[in-house]
Nucleic acid binder design. Structure first.
Lengths: 350, 350
DNA sequence: ATGAAAGCGCTAACAT
DNA sequence: ATGTTAGCGCTTTCAT
């Protein structure tokens, strides 16, 4: 006949084990542990003592099963290397910790199938809510799965999703850059951007076009390049732009990685910035200030927009928890700001 | 009398709902969904069809309750802004996704209480395993909680923890830097490092001391600074070092953030690198190459060590799942390598 | 091949 | 204040 040992060595003690050890019922233990009313102070102490001795750890799964909602919040992003992700992840982790939630992070690498798998897993875990940077070609099933959940879109927005989005107005950021360069006298301005299948891609390109139009500047197709937002692409396209004849007198990079690649490309030429070429980047990692010359760029209010997105999500969750109807939330588009350092100057005299 | 609607609009359909809709028992549904033996092909199809129509999503909590282990892996790190975290997080997210696990990320900011809370949450969720960059002053309870779990320490190691650690041999990296500078003729070398309560802090300082000793160079206490590994501290200490009289002819920064701060500080002086001052950084974010001059630094095999740590963890988990005894795993210390660019040169002639 | 029933660990409604 | 009981959704014997 096998029996559990009395007070020690139980591998995964449950409230029943505590109850046995104390000779009380397991519901008493539950009450004591959850700090409920109708429980004597003495009992509370004894239960906690025993729980600690036995090494009791509540089974979150069982609790979730009973209460129908977990304490999990998901973050779905294409990539982990960007400042955008880093800031969002940090702020979200902190806010989740404060609210007693766990944060599940998923990386899609812009693969819609991976995105679907992650969303599925989150729903299976009965996640409370999701912050998502949607892939450009989200599957219909993914959107369907996301519908009954608390969701906020971040940085990008996808038409299939009805959830509110917190984005940054790339168009106005790029337009401001164009404006600045035009004022300096530039006429031939190059632009490197994302493909038009991303909401960010179309927005920033639109900003470029409108900015140029506003200053009566013609847009030469050869000076506008779109492709994957990688450093490699930024490097290659910047190099290509600089081989045009006549070459542009200024270049706008419309992504943090493109900016890095673009700067790399200029390093391989004899061009002196800003005398021979003006450059405006996108995003503002700390190292842009350390370049020679320090790079002018479009600043992004990453912290602010992350906070906004998370607050939206938490408000949705709170409403749902309390059974209130989820008030429709308006999407938010934050304004970037131009940071002028020393990488722009009037164009060289031909 | 209230009844559930027959086939549509059930908020969170369970296998029972599917069973009802099909007029079969819920265990049949379970079998069909889990692709088990002893189930007719026809039934499998019908069940899956119905499940999809009803929008069924398995309840991971209930499944975990039954099977006693979840599909969650935890990553506990002090900060999310570092390349170290970014690389680890990316690789871990990918490997977890491939293995069908979810990744829970927690940020401690080096607060032991926060660390404890995160470990507790992970244990409550019956996490399969944890990759942890331990805080310097881990609580005894945290170590206790971690003991029965699959754990790998990463980047730092803590004496309370018995789990294997994958670290990078900072001592040898810094020693290599000292060696390189000594060969160039430097005698007065400054060092900015972490406090001695971190394993990384003591290691890198030891590397400095040993390197200096090896070349018969005296260590001036005023040229050795230890403190928080922030950019601010790096900036302040580098500035302080440069105000010594006579000032050091070379400076070694022993952290990525310290490196950034150190470079910032040199920018505020008239010193020309490497003519007036040699600088060696730590870690190798892409932008170091873009500085003028490109910075020499200690390269870190971040990807490699992340992969190693994760493989260790997955092996532990696999062994546990299969009931095999967990084979004792040896800790691993990877060798960094010196990356020579253009920020070092012989010292100026006094 | 399918159904009936038990039980994972927990909370909460209902007794006492 | 404490005990009894039911049931959350699922997997898994054990019958049939």
């Amino acid at each position: 006949m096998r029996t559990k040992k009395a007070t020690a060595g139980i591998s995964n003690p449950t409230i029943k084990d505590i109850a046995n050890a104390l000779g009380v019922s397991h519901s008493t233990v539950s009450r004591a542990l959850n700090d409920q009313r109708h429980i004597s102070k003495d009992m509370k102490v004894r239960v906690r003592q025993a729980a600690s001795e036995l090494g009791y750890i509540v089974n979150a799964g069982a609790r979730t099963l009973r209460q129908a909602n977990s304490a999990l919040v998901g973050l779905i992003a294409p990539d982990v290397m960007s400042e955008l992700f880093a800031v969002m992840c940090k702020v979200l982790a902190l806010r989740c910790a404060r609210a007693g939630y766990q944060l599940a992070v998923s990386i899609t690498e812009d693969d819609p199938a991976v995105e679907l798998a992650h969303v599925k897993a989150l729903r299976q875990a009965r996640a409370l809510g999701v912050v998502i940077i949607p892939t450009p070609h989200m599957l219909a099933e993914t959107a369907e799965l996301l519908k009954p959940t608390c969701v906020v879109q971040f940085s990008r927005h996808h038409e299939r999703l009805t959830a509110p989005a917190v984005t940054i107005d790339g168009a106005s950021g790029v337009a401001a850059a164009v404006h600045h360069l035009a004022e300096l006298g530039h006429k031939r301005i190059g632009f490197v951007g994302l493909p038009s299948d991303r909401s960010t891609g179309v927005g920033r390109l639109r900003g470029f076009m409108e900015g140029m139009a506003q200053h009566g500047l013609p847009v030469e197709p050869a000076l506008v390049r779109q492709g994957p937002g990688t450093t490699e692409f930024g490097r290659a396209m910047t190099a290509a732009l600089l081989q045009q004849n006549p070459r542009p007198t200024a270049i706008i990079l419309s992504t943090a990685d493109l900016t890095q690649g673009g700067v790399e490309a200029t390093r391989r030429t004899n061009l002196v910035i800003p005398k021979d070429l003006s450059v405006v980047g996108f995003g503002d990692p700390a190292w842009l200030r350390l370049l020679t010359p320090p790079l002018s760029t479009v600043g992004l209010t990453l912290g602010e927009s992350s906070e906004a997105a998370i607050s939206m999500l938490l408000r949705q969750i709170e409403a749902k928890e309390e059974g209130r109807p989820i008030e429709p939330q308006a999407s938010l588009e934050l304004e970037p700001y131009l940071i002028l350092r020393s990488s722009t100057a009037p164009p060289p005299k031909a």
